[in-house]
Design a protein around this nucleic acid. Structure first.
Length: 512
RNA sequence: GGCUCGGUAGCUCAGUGGUAGAGCAGGGGACUCAUAAGCCCUUGGUCGUAGGUUCAAGUCCUACCCGAGCCA
């Protein structure tokens, strides 16, 4: 099935709310938003994000704060929603795993799998890390502590429900071989394949040592938080409830994850789906870490960045641009305020913002602020950039954001170059008004294209551009109408030059 | 201990057998509509190291070094 024939469904992981959000959460969510906003310009689209609220870690955090887990979650969720709103994220649904619509379906999944025999009762004994919600073999422990987080592990001995993961190993291997691009980047694919080739054990999916979770139907204990969490991707779109809706969106087009949760999403998740008789997602893409001076960002290192403060300092759209432009998606991402400022000043203020300003200034000065009639059919730009929208769309949906932006910047550069080469101030002085009209028209039309093409990446600033260009229609309409041809901007449109689109940011001098 | 990915210009990266590229930074120039922005020209790399295969290797093979990660 090719893209365009059915709906585009993109998901972020649901975020575990054991604390405040950080910039890594913004990264994943913004990327999903750009995918969704792009997809919406040509096909039905659904973008899901949300919060993962069960598990012992949340229960402990709540207890430490003197609150019930539900209170704790209810107070934190608005922080996440405010953050995403602040970064102009436009999700279609925000699911919380404590919602009834989710819980009843998780229980239904459990019952179905138990009826099928894919869930069975067994005995589990072993070491368990509360922080990571993970069981460890004794051989993996480091000085008796969790090899991942270094905290003490607990000895657990209980009758557990198991998911028959091992039964899906062959099918997983076959799936990986048949669809070598279904897990990206390649390094993650290889690592998951290595895990599969080593062999799989059945997965314990029940917990009895705490009760903050989805109750197991007809038994004590709660369902393993990871099973609970993964199911959000289908419970939110009507699985077992609204068949037509569910079939519209599933299987997901793109599931974004951090690489630390690749195993859950590329091994356990497809196996569960198959056990339910559903298809695996089309693409799972694991992005890299955000690093600071090469160091992983984490709360324990004390170098986590407050995304609210970053937004205030640089602006949400500049941050969005930076996150997509700076590193190839999938690679680790080295962050610094200097780099953000460099991108903001160099690409956004100098190239794009200044282009808008110099253009509208000349339209104001030479043509009273009204877009003149040009000759778009005869424009060099029409020919050169006819294929740009399709190229940009393809690059974005392929998650090659950096390349997409580089393509768009070819137009920015071409417009800036045209001004310098054709010298509108000379055309004006010499009274060559037809040439001047044609040039000014092309510049405005080019800026209109840029606003449309960049709108998924910088929704707020491009709306500002749009207003300055005279508000020529719907900026987020289907590209097959807005960018159908060079010449969509109507002559006579009254422009409204405003304040600088991206005022330059001066970094404070470094301390000696 | 096994495995994976990466190591290309000061920086961030592209380049999957056929004369080393882009952007930024650095240097020079012409202009003035513009956020002292933009435009033009330009300096700069023995492509981690050592071997090997090939008429030809950044690109394939082997070993090693460095970085990140996965598994044990």
């Amino acid at each position: 099935m090719t893209k365009g024939e059915r709906a585009y469904y993109v998901t972020t992981p649901i975020y575990y709310i054991s604390g405040e959000p950080h910039v890594g959460h913004v990264y994943t969510t913004v990327v999903a938003d750009v995918l969704a906003r792009t997809a919406r310009t040509f096909q039905p689209t659904f973008f899901l994000t949300g919060t993962d609220e069960h598990g012992q870690k949340v229960a402990n955090a709540a207890a430490a704060a003197g609150k019930t887990p539900q209170q704790w979650c209810d107070e934190l969720v608005p922080r996440w929603k405010a953050l995403f709103a602040g970064y102009h994220v436009q999700y279609d649904d925000f699911i919380r795993t404590t919602e009834k619509r989710h819980i009843v379906k998780v229980q239904r999944v459990f019952e179905q799998l138990r009826e099928r025999g894919d869930v069975y009762l067994g005995k589990y004994e072993g070491w368990y890390c509360v922080n990571d919600e993970t069981f460890w073999l004794a051989s993996k422990l480091v000085d008796g502590c969790c090899p991942t987080c270094g905290r003490e592990v607990e000895w657990i001995s209980e009758d557990d429900w198991f998911f028959r993961l091992s039964a899906y190993r062959d099918r997983l291997i076959e799936h990986f071989r048949r669809f070598p691009a279904w897990v990206q980047p390649r390094s993650v694919y290889n690592e998951m394949m290595a895990i599969l080739e080593e062999g799989l054990e059945d997965l314990s999916i029940s917990r009895t040592n705490f009760d903050w979770g989805v109750p197991i139907p007809g038994d004590g204990g709660v369902i393993y938080v990871w099973l609970d969490a993964l199911l959000n991707y289908i419970t939110a779109i009507g699985w077992s409830e609204d068949e037509a809706r569910f079939r519209t969106y599933w299987p997901a087009s793109t599931q974004l994850i951090g690489k630390e949760i690749a195993r859950f999403h590329t091994i356990i998740w497809p196996a569960i789906l198959w056990a339910l008789g559903e298809a695996a997602p089309e693409l799972v893409f694991a992005h890299g870490w955000i690093t600071i001076d090469g160091q992983k960002m984490s709360k324990s290192l004390g170098n986590a960045i407050d995304p609210f403060a970053l937004k205030e300092r640089f602006g949400a759209d500049s941050m969005r641009y930076f996150l997509l432009r700076e590193a190839p998606f999938g690679s680790d991402f080295s962050y610094s305020e200097e780099k953000i400022a460099q991108r903001h000043n160099g690409d956004l203020a100098n190239d794009l913002g200044n282009l808008l300003q110099r253009t509208l200034s000349m339209v104001g000065r030479y043509r009273g602020g009204v877009v003149p009639a040009g000759r778009p059919g005869a424009s060099d730009f029409a020919q050169t950039f006819a294929g740009l929208p399709m190229t940009v769309r393809a690059r974005i949906l392929d998650l090659r954001f950096r390349e997409a932006l580089e393509e768009i910047w070819r137009l920015v550069t071409a417009l800036n170059r045209a001004i310098d080469e054709r010298k509108p101030w000379v055309l004006q002085k010499e009274g060559r008004s037809a040439e001047l009209d044609a040039l000014l028209y092309d510049l405005c039309e080019g800026l209109r294209w840029l606003a449309v093409l960049l709108h998924p990446v910088m929704p707020e600033r491009t709306r500002n551009m749009w207003r300055q260009l005279g508000d020529p229609g719907a900026i987020d309409a289907d590209w097959s109408s807005t960018l159908a041809r060079w010449g969509g901007l109507e002559a006579g449109t009254r422009t409204a030059i405003g304040a600088s689109l991206f005022p330059r940011i001066e970094l404070l001098a470094a301390e000696p």
